[in-house]
Structure formats: structure tokens, C-alpha cells
Design a protein around this nucleic acid. Sequence first.
DNA 1: TTGAAAGCGCTACCAC
DNA 2: GTGGTAGCGCTTTCAA
Lengths: 294, 294
Amino acid sequence: MEAARELGYRPNAIASGLITKRSNMVAVLISTQARLYYPEVLAQLTQTLSAQDMRVLLFDLKTEGDVEAALQQVWRYWVDGAIVAAHLTAAQIRAFDDHHVPIVLYNRSGEGEVVSSVFCDSVAGERVLLDALLSAGHRHFGIITGPNDSYTGRQRVETAKLLINEAGFGPPLVAEGTFDYGSGTRGLHQLMEASGGKLDAVVCANDLMAIGAIDAARLEMGLKVPDDLSIVGFDGAGAASWIGYQVTTIQQPVERMCRAAVAMLMERIEAPETASEVRTFPGKFIPGTSARIA
Amino acid sequence: MEAARELGYRPNAIASGLITKRSNMVAVLISTQARLYYPEVLAQLTQTLSAQDMRVLLFDLKTEGDVEAALQQVWRYWVDGAIVAAHLTAAQIRAFDDHHVPIVLYNRSGEGEVVSSVFCDSVAGERVLLDALLSAGHRHFGIITGPNDSYTGRQRVETAKLLINEAGFGPPLVAEGTFDYGSGTRGLHQLMEASGGKLDAVVCANDLMAIGAIDAARLEMGLKVPDDLSIVGFDGAGAASWIGYQVTTIQQPVERMCRAAVAMLMERIEAPETASEVRTFPGKFIPGTSARIA
DNA sequence: TTGAAAGCGCTACCAC
DNA sequence: GTGGTAGCGCTTTCAA
């Protein structure tokens, strides 16, 4: 032991993994898209995993096709578990079970499979936003959606539609977006045109599109936000709190969610038979100044 | 072989790495900070490495102290190489050599060690910005720096100071920043106060601070940018091109730089004796509208 | 407490 | 070609 210390000997983790069947590596699959509108998630996950003495094997998924290729690598590396913030099919989720790799989904649907996951409560969050907009007297609603394969995006939009309908002001106008800045600006132009300018409030499926919409409204249409038009987002992303935007939004508790995801995964690595679990965290309402609310 | 195919057999990469001494894993060390102001780098690196059939073992460095802990893990996992976008000491760089792990630095100085690296040319880029400002008649300069451990940040600032001095308008006022939005707004307030309001142009060490400064100027001081005050940045980060900002800046060729870094690393993995090399790429001047230039 | 040996899953090598 | 064997560096077990 002394000699080892003097020579600075470090056991080879690869070799020890071979015999212990524990690589101390966790695969993190994240879509490039997710990264752009929410960069903190990966940093937080990586740090939390490091603190648990786990290494991160990162897979960046640009397209749907990348998923299969990434999964092949995941099996080959005998990772101890996986955290996935990307869209997976039911069959792909089942494959994790077949390979005995515990998995925790981050803000993604299990597509009908029984699987552990952490969520920020989209329904409750969107309800807070809509309640605020409705009780402030908004009547003419537009929605800018997320991409189709985003589960949380769909949930947010569905909730908004539902509440607008329930209030008797629906169905709202809808523009399809892709969670990026440009689709927010384009979305607002579409909505404006479709409504003939008679738009009170725009609900965006995330903050980045809300920011795009705010810029389009103020700088391209000459509207006052929030006086002429209210715009709300979702996420609580960094730029949402910049002085010029101060987006009215729901902030996801990224740190708590990441800690929960890692804790759940570790539990299932230690005790593989642990039943699956879904943990939902409330978002925090950020009043901001991009919507005219009480 | 047929049986293997039918059973879906995949060789265990851990075991094969043990005998071949090739793990097909590359350690990527990146500072949390770097991630925030330049999220594309990690995505691009990961994708480029995946395309070369290399996996990414990610280390997110929050503080300087994290580096040592991360390095210990790097040695244990027998990675084939490393790409580092974080500050390393000379001793730490030498340690890679001792462990026979090829390394490529991304926009970081080798601290006097002989080491391969890729850079975006800060000196040339900053010179283009300053030439534009000077020939447009700006006289009273302020600078918002990056954090002290950022090599590129220091280079950008030093170049700006030098050119301002050479033009006979120096030394400029300096505010210390940390590459984030808030330090841009704070920096501008400091500079304004120190100058008694007599400020023509502010040179920021990156775009995020330039954006903070623009917001502070327009929304907190009631100034017109660029009419009353010119502000330039560096990076070409996503938000820099948003309608409201259109920062006058130098855009780094992230994709080319990442491809080069990976290519250089692969070369040194295949042929460990390959001499080190420094590759510098020019940035692209983005005129924008945040500075009053010809 | 210390030491020896087996074996994790694979590849490399050397016989045949 | 095809098959058997050694051994990568470690942990675990069992014997001394």
C-alpha cells in the first residue's frame, strides 16, 4: 500500500469494471435541441453524478436516427444506468430493460412503458399562466407550439388549449414552432396574420420562442409588450430574466429535478428490482413583465 | 458468426479495451462557465467524436479544485485522449504526457508547455473590431474584461488596450467582468461612472457581456446604441444575432475548430509521437448594429 | 494478516 | 482457415 501511494498507483477502472460488473459510468442521452434551450440540465446532471462518484458517458442526439446508434454503444459499454432527455420509442425503452440497464427519463414520456422519470409539472404550470392571463381579461389567444416529439411541449399546449376553451374563448390560433428563437418570431407573424391583428395574448411552449415573439412584436410590429400584447413562456431559461425581456414564465427546478433523477437512478443501480417511480416537481411562477397580469 | 448475429451479440467494449489498450473513449473537460457562454462547442465536439466512433467521457468543471479530481478519474479510465476547454496549469498539462494521454486544448493557453491546441485568432479578431471603431471616430474607450483565468479573454483585452494606446486614446477605462450577462450590465455602470458619462465605445471580452451592456445602456441609462454608445463583443454566440441585439462581433468558426481538434487528437492517438501543433482559425467579422461603424 | 489463484470477456497469437 | 491458449489488470475467494 505504501509503495502504491509512493508510485501514485491508481487502479484501472476498466479492468475493475470487468470483474465487478460496475463501470461507474452512466450514459446521458440528450437531444441537441434540448441542450440549446436548456443548457443547465447537462451541467447539473454531470455535477450531481460526479458527486456520486459516477462518470458521464455523453451521447448527443442530433436526429432520431442517432438514437439507435447511441443505444448500440450504450450496450457495448456496460454502463450502470442511463438518464435520457431525448425522445425514445416504447421499444427503445424496453431495450433498456432487456439489457438490464436502469433508466430515468428527464421530462419525457414513457410512451406507455413503465419507467422511472422526473418531470416539471407542465399542466399545473401552464394553468397558473393561463389563470393569470384569463383573470387579467385576455380574450384573443394565440399559441406557439413546440416540436411534435416533445412531450412536455405537447402537454403545455394541450393544457393551454383546454383552459382557453373552458373559459369560452377558444379554440385559439396555433402556430407550430420548434423551440428556437426564430420559430418564435415566425410564429408571432403567423398568428398576427391569422388573427387580423386581433391578438391579446400569446402562449409559447418555451421561453426561447417567447423571447423571439417579444422581439418580433416590439421591433418588427411596433407593438408594446405587455400593453398591446401579452406573451408568456415556460422554463425560466437564463435569457428569460434579462432586463429587456423579463418573460412571464414558469421556472423549472432544474437542480432539484437533476438531483432526483440521479438519486432515483442510483437507487435502481444498487437495487435493480426497485419499482419504477414518477416524480413531478412544481415549477415556480415568475411574474416578469412580458404579460399584462394583476 | 451467424449465431452471434442471430443472438444480437455485441462485444463488451470494456473487456476489449482491456486487451487492446484502446477504450475508444475521449475525455472532454469543459468549464461550466465555458458551457454557458458557448453551448455549441460541447455539442459539436460530441458529434464529431461520435462520427469517429469515439465516445465522450464528460467532465464538467465548476471550480479550479474540480480539475484535480477530474484528472484522477481520467487516468483511471485509460481514455485514449482528451480535449480540454478549461484552464489547466503547466503541471496538469505535463501530467497528460506522463500518463501518455494525448491532449488538445480548445481556446486555452498551454501555459508554456508544448501542447497541441486550436484557437480562434483573438488578436486578429479584436484588431478588426478596433480598426472599425477607431476609423469611425470613437475616442473614449471602455473595456469589460473576462475572468482572469481565461486566456482568450486576456488576449482580446490586451489587444484592445494596445490598439487604443497606439491610436493615442489610451489608456482606456477597464471594468472586470466574468463573461456572464450580469457582469456586462455592472461593467457598463462602472465604466460610465468612472468616465463621467464621456464614453464612446465599449469593448467587451465576449458577446454575453456585450448584451448585458447593451441592455444596461438602453434600458437603465436611456442611451441609444449605437448612436450614443458603441458596444462590441466577441464569439458570435446565439443571442448575439437576435433582432434586438445584433451585436457587432467576431464569430468563432466553432464547427471547423471542433473538427480540427478532433482530427488532431485522433492523429496523436494513432501515432503518439506526432509533434504538437497549434492551429489558429480566423473569426468572421459580423458588422451587426451595436456599434457605429462605416 | 498475507499470499496465491481463478476468472471477468475479450483479442492476439500460434499451432494445426 | 480454425481452434486453442495466454493474458490484459483487476477483485474475490480461499488457503496458509
